[in-house]
């Protein structure tokens, strides 16, 4: 059974339908990429899954449970963490406090301590800067903090929204390597990206969104070689 199953999802902003009935599934252990141009509805889809915006139709099932009645703040406890677009770290709080807020719903002190060590091991720079105010970190460090913060909730699935945004090519490569290694250590990843090439390179499968509809889906390497995808999203002619 799929870990995350989205069926006929519809989301509206007022009278405008942003998502017009999309269905997709994410299996345990996979990296799934949701690619598409600006305004295709990628972030909207993620926000619907994490509960930040209400859905207008369809259903979202997570771990066999319908999320319709589960408020956003409770979805974390079910094993869902989001690394939001623009990172949205708490810029006035310390790095350490940001990470601790990631573990806000957890009560197991020893487990939290252990995961904090793991996050510091994965992101040594965060350890060096644990006492620093998060707003003073560089863009790449903030992205790492946002990922570390999400990991602190010990999620079954991580929803990642445009992790490459605003970063230098070198850092983008680093971030994607980290996503891959997070996945390899057992966390399922749903990745939303405009950088289709990078996303397809690490994903198992992918869905292509266009103005609120899924127009194409399949194995990532197949999509990578699909002519229409190459033309529209990989910048080739």
């Amino acid at each position: 059974m799929a870990l995350l199953e989205v069926k006929d999802l519809e989301v509206s902003y007022g009278v405008i339908k942003a998502i017009k009935g999309i269905s997709f599934e994410v299996n345990r252990g996979e990296i799934i990429a949701l690619i598409g141009a600006n305004g295709a509805g990628k972030t909207t889809t993620l926000h619907a899954i994490s509960g930040l915006i209400p859905i207008a139709g369809g259903s979202i099932e997570f771990d066999g449970k319908d999320l319709a009645k589960v408020p956003a703040h409770e979805r974390v406890m079910h094993g869902m963490a989001q690394v939001p677009e623009g990172r949205r770290i708490f810029s006035q709080l310390s790095v350490w406090k940001n990470l601790m807020l990631g573990a806000y719903t957890r009560k197991d002190k020893d487990g939290i301590e252990k995961d904090l060590e793991e996050v510091f091991h994965r992101f040594p720079r965060l350890k060096e800067r644990r006492g620093q105010i998060a707003g003073t970190l560089s863009g790449g460090e903030q992205q790492m903090l946002a990922m570390g913060r999400a990991l602190m909730s010990k999620p079954a699935i991580m929803l990642m929204d445009e992790p490459s945004m605003g970063l230098s090519p070198l850092l983008v490569t680093e971030i994607f390597d980290i996503i891959k290694s997070i996945n390899e250590s057992g966390t399922t990843v749903l990745l939303v990206e405009q950088n289709a090439r990078k996303a397809l390179a690490i994903a198992n499968r992918a869905y292509v969104l266009e103005t609120g509809r899924i127009i194409l889906s399949g194995d990532a390497d197949k999509l990578m070689n699909d002519d229409s995808v190459r033309k529209a999203y990989l910048g080739e002619s």
């Binding site: 703040h73 974390v76 949205r88 708490f90 006035q92 990631g102 719903t105």
Partner: peptide, 24 residues
């Protein structure tokens, strides 16, 4: 306190606080 952290988080970004599991 943990409730205090939640307050700080909500005051900075309600949406992100919710993503941390904070009941706004």
């Amino acid at each position: 306190s943990s409730a205090g952290s939640a307050m700080l988080a909500v005051s900075e970004d309600k949406g992100a606080a919710q993503l941390m599991g904070v009941n706004v």
